[in-house]
Design a protein around this nucleic acid. Structure first.
Lengths: 408, 408
DNA sequence: ATATTTTGTCCAAACTTCGAACAAATGCCC
DNA sequence: GGGCATTTGTTCGAAGTTTGGACAAAATAT
């Protein structure tokens, strides 16, 4: 039950009904393709006549196409409808401390090309280098279709509306305009988003199958920091100042370990890769300088190695991982108690040890969850190889095509 | 940008546009009444012809009525349209440990009658007593209009969909069916909701003026416990297990004081009325038995008295209040970091000392908020006398009349 | 008195969905 | 092979919408 915003509403015109139904049809085709008009009509509970017109319009708009005819036991063979995603392209960019990733993707999130290079930090050079590489990639690899925009994912706080990077400590960026500069250099529309939120967008817009059914979920990505994307009622929550989802900096204990953000006791300071490694090596985070902390995090030995040692029987490694798992669960309990999502998705290096830590996470989660039924909140691990950040960047461009029309 | 739920959508029919626009018109009339058709047409950017038809239908449905003609400098005088709320009634019930409150309210949340009696705990007797009183109240005071339902607010966890009280520790209720029993006894539709969430509903649906503009806010009610209602994009978040909003039990420090819920270090255990009083009297909560805790909370000396002493120059009283204010701000920081609402509304006895504590709350909030702009999140105190819980109960019944139609 | 302005209604045009009829395509049965 | 049933996809009139403009009514300004 949504309240109408009397300061920002949209009245229905005589074409609104058609717009709504066209968009519903598009999403049903996306989910059930290949699908016939008759089948679509049954799913929508409208007459085949209406679907015929809707399909015609979607074909004219280039959003779907007619494919082969299907087989049925009796009667006229249906002509199948398909989503046109193959030749609609997006460039996805993931800027990280060490490397910048450029992926050419189609609108279904499928990877067509991938390029990795050392991140350039100075914003003007960053834009110059990136736009040159994007243009080259589109020239050599983009013959399959038309590129409709560039999605950029940044580890830090981003004002998605204005396209400015408010604060990305690992890159050393403060209030930097990336979107407009990059748009000017490439001539393509650019969208920019925080990495945690981008991952949730990837899940919301590009995931297929049963996972696509949840309209309210939280995506928690644990790596150098803890990135979180919150999706409520099928919509990403960005918030007044575009910082919604920063669960990483809620306190587990106000006087806990020192966090990179400058505060103490943040969830992130208990579960980040650095925290996990610190437990193993016995580092005292509060005593290390910020610079030393960063270098420690970039060390050649990382959490994946630690997981390997734990699997190899290293008890100390396992203990470090289990401790992280425990704090992961305790923090997730707050996510469950406050947002009570349909499910929680986890990503990051530590999740490669999911079989080792699931029990510990669940037990500690249950410890601080208020009612028993909420202990059953599904926890799902999103596999590392799907590159949620890059897919999220692509989703920034692809999503508007499939979103519900704004109404009332 | 909302994703369409392909498993639960609603196609547009030929009457959908009209439904949408009728509902928009209704809400605009509600906000700007008295308002003429012509003015409404300008606000909606549609022709007066359309508004004429919409208004006619709303009149036939009994949702609005024509009032006096207005004054205008030139031209034909407009006939004003008004919302019909005076003769549409709801019964609001607030069940608390000591007393049960019954309010007869119109659809604008205005109080027509109020009855207070000692709470009956045994569920069957509770329903019997309550339904008898409701019926009597409607007979004696309800001549002004038609009662369209009963809204019940309970201090505990509630499954709003099934109408069951999952767990209300202060009442000693576990998995009790209230809604259907009460509906059967009175013959009226019954809605039931948790008190924190109900307060946010009151704010969302019954507040007038600028406060009504925020579509994303958090309502924090501090009394025996901490009740929180989360509204995102104009819609209350209930969650998978109907526990969304339980910020009261997120940890500030995992090894903090014992909470009534059985866990330790919950925000509630730092800022509840009991916690504030304990600081003043030097109680050790962890050592008191649950029963003693309850009795301490029911003592004759309460937070209002403590505030009075602080105003009177009692330094110890002031210190206790300031400590609570500090923890209030630290907890609110997590609300800001995770949901980043447009504004936060505060209620409860402690807010009567807002002039004394605002600075402390703001400073500690700023301490743990991630970016400077978010420190400016408006904190507003909702005055005690407006009875947010009872208004929330009324909102449960009144809201469906004004909600946006479900579409796509 | 007349002109001007504003409100509210009315009507044809354009655009929807809805329901039913119809043509096309295919398999089954004799 | 011919008829029949079944399914798909299109077409068309009916009914419900907004759109844009015309028009009457009502009130003030000149």
């Amino acid at each position: 039950m949504r309240k109408i915003n009397t300061h920002d509403f949209k009245v229905a015109t005589r074409t609104t009904s058609r717009e709504i139904n066209r968009r519903i049809a598009l999403n049903l085709i996306r989910e059930h393709q290949p699908i016939s008009r008759a089948d679509l009509a049954r799913r929508m509970s409208v007459t085949r006549g209406v679907v015929s017109v809707l399909a015609q319009e979607l074909i004219e708009q280039g959003l779907i196409y007619e494919g082969a005819t299907g087989e049925v036991t009796r009667g006229r063979k249906p002509t199948f409808l398909h989503i046109r995603t193959r030749d609609r392209l997006a460039v996805a960019v993931d800027v990280r401390f060490s490397k910048t990733y450029i992926m050419l993707s189609d609108f279904s999130g499928r990877q067509l090309a991938l390029e990795i290079y050392d991140t350039v930090f100075a914003p003007p050079q960053f834009v110059k280098e990136l736009s040159a590489r994007v243009k080259r990639m589109l020239k050599t690899q983009g013959s399959a279709g038309v590129c409709e925009g560039i999605g950029v994912v940044v580890p830090g706080m981003v004002d998605h509306r204005t396209g400015r990077v408010l604060n990305a400590p690992t890159l050393g960026w403060r209030d930097v305009d990336v979107r407009d500069k990059l748009a000017a250099a490439t001539g393509l529309p650019v969208q920019i988003e925080n990495s945690g939120r981008a991952c949730s967008l990837a899940h919301l817009w590009l995931e297929r199958g049963e996972a696509a059914a949840t309209q309210s979920f939280v995506y928690v990505s644990v790596s150098d920091g803890v990135g979180v994307g919150v999706v409520v009622h099928g919509e990403l929550v960005r918030g007044r100042d575009h910082i919604a989802g920063e669960f990483g900096h809620m306190p587990l204990s106000l006087d806990g370990p020192r966090c990179l953000c400058g505060m103490t006791g943040c969830w992130e300071s208990y579960v980040s890769n650095l925290a996990t490694l610190s437990r193993y090596f016995g580092w005292n985070l509060s005593k290390l300088s910020p610079k030393a902390l960063h270098e420690a995090g970039r060390d050649s030995f990382n959490v994946l190695d630690l997981v390997a040692r734990a699997r190899g029987g290293d008890a100390k490694a396992n203990a470090a991982i289990q401790a992280t798992a425990r704090f992961l669960g305790l923090g997730l309990a707050t996510v469950v108690n406050t947002l009570n999502p349909d499910s929680i998705y986890l990503a990051g290096e530590i999740t490669t040890a999911w079989d080792l830590i699931e029990e510990t996470v669940r037990v500690s989660l249950a410890e601080r969850v208020l009612i028993a039924s909420a202990e059953g909140t599904p926890l799902r691990v999103s596999p590392v190889q799907v590159q949620p950040r890059l897919r999220g960047a692509a989703a920034l461009i692809a999503a508007p095509t499939f979103a519900a029309p704004r109404v009332a």
